[in-house]
Design a protein around this nucleic acid. Sequence first.
DNA 1: CCTATAATGAGGTGCGCACCTCATTGCAAG
DNA 2: CTTGCAATGAGGTGCGCACCTCATTATAGG
Lengths: 339, 339
Amino acid sequence: MRPTAKDLAAEAGVSLATIDRVLNGRSGVKARTVAKVNEAIDRIGFVRNLSAVNLARKKTYQFRFLLPEHGDQFLGVLVKHIDEAKKAFATEMADVAAIRFPVDDPYKLADYLGGLDADLTDGIAIMAPESPQARDAINRLLERGGEVVHFLAGQPKADSIDFVGINNHAAGATAGQLIGRFLGGQEGKILIVSETMQSRDSIERRLGFDDVINREYPQLQTLPTVETYGDTERTRRIFKNVFANHPGISAVYVLSAEARIPIEEISKLATQPLVKVVHERTPFTEAALQNGKIDAVIAQNPGHLVRSAIRILKARVDKRQPLASQEKIRIEILLKENL
Amino acid sequence: MRPTAKDLAAEAGVSLATIDRVLNGRSGVKARTVAKVNEAIDRIGFVRNLSAVNLARKKTYQFRFLLPEHGDQFLGVLVKHIDEAKKAFATEMADVAAIRFPVDDPYKLADYLGGLDADLTDGIAIMAPESPQARDAINRLLERGGEVVHFLAGQPKADSIDFVGINNHAAGATAGQLIGRFLGGQEGKILIVSETMQSRDSIERRLGFDDVINREYPQLQTLPTVETYGDTERTRRIFKNVFANHPGISAVYVLSAEARIPIEEISKLATQPLVKVVHERTPFTEAALQNGKIDAVIAQNPGHLVRSAIRILKARVDKRQPLASQEKIRIEILLKENL
DNA sequence: CCTATAATGAGGTGCGCACCTCATTGCAAG
DNA sequence: CTTGCAATGAGGTGCGCACCTCATTATAGG
């Protein structure tokens, strides 16, 4: 059997009360005694029984995902996985829910965060663009004892807050490398499309993409980013212009999660086969991979994203260290063969 | 607060003893009563407190990974992740260990499995080639109440036993697609190398690879598989022959986990740049990707493999359903950009 | 009807720990 | 030495459940 706190007390030569004080970081213990207990822990390999801890603490975790009100298919996929995680984590006393919110409005976001009771909500995964207001509100929430992770958006590693998501610069570079290789040395221009370039993600992907193309494929020329604003008409109009002015477009990179509009419009305009790379696995991109409408998808596993955010929040609440190797989100490359 | 068994008893109009009988599948309860309880469970959304369950059951899980005694770098990586998982799962009362074993000997394997006490070992992840002896021994172990998953090797879905690992046919197809695309339409021959073709994995990867090349890249010709048997001298000798007899080799696919010997020997012999695709992320393949010695790696996440095997075994012991979406092992494509 | 057996209830115990109160001891300053 | 506080011990309670025993009540068979 595994050693219990009682065994530990005997080994360390102290009482259970002192073990309790040390294990839970309470005050009023001499440094000398703390050291004695820690040595005993190492000696007998004591590990607290998490079940007993959780039971005794009567702890239930309240976690919330703060997501945009409106969005693309990928957002829908995320919500589906949050629902799935809700069931999976119910057995671990964690309640998980998605909250749809006008996250683009920094003031409303700050208001919402400011109104949160850290006693009722243990942790939040926030998918929102950076803003000074949000930043301040988050810091105040942290001071009140809440836990926060940035989810897919926001400042990676800018502060001490965990970031759950891929390295977008590397993701863009990966897309660049794929397109470069798929074009096999031939010359050409690359059309780059995004719903908007307002977000940090888009900018970083573009930078990573350009880095690789400029360094390794100088025969390729990247065109300025076309912003669709999610508007079919606008997209069609701009594409017509671009294709008219730029003969020799040989590849397309869609760097935002919304790929349907640009891919469908391009298939109407293109006169020769193009290499097409987009982001995120959605019902549309899966189908498009299968029937050859696109060549590769740069993706991140949405289920993993959601579970990772929850596990990190849980670890922070418990004052444990998250398991880094498990929480690293991989940049996946999907072809039709490895769907 | 979440409803407890007591609340459930009140809602169902039965006693705690009956709730206990139903929840734990004990006998001596009328079907009518079981239904009443289950309805009440749905009505109030009762979920058993896992912490309390585990505490009361005093359950500790004993899981073992049965791995080959000798192997490549990838095996070392796996062992490292098993050690890491040992710590991570200690808090969940699961004891995990790797056992090195001459798994290639079906009789010794059957002996070992036959000698296992299902009371002392709750579950085993077996990485061993198929054999009638192993199959029988596994079935007997299952009858004694042990749990088993096939780990990376063995018959995927051939029986009711879970398989943890990638679909090797799809992995080979992915490699084929990558090489085909990277060659960009040019003609050429593809050298295919494996440590051995004895294993089912190797055969399936080769089949998947050939499928894609034959179907989508008819201008490419796949050569017969070169078997290295892990022997540098032998490899060098055969390679010299192959390169002498086959001008126009433009790509290499190493389909076994051991990639170092073939890649190093080829770099000495090749007169023109070759597209090189290998399997598994190891210190060697990582470095080779970085410095351009290879072009892509088809990989599976070793940490995920290990944790997945443990989670599945745990779910089986608890008579729960594993979360399918989490346990699916992805075929990863690694370029130097998305390491 | 009685009897045998099935179905259910009542109640206790303990898992390992957190959290609490109160008593006791050690130790330093005055 | 005494006073005062810091450090530690002793012991109790309860978290939600599994597991057990024994008593009581339904149900069916004869």
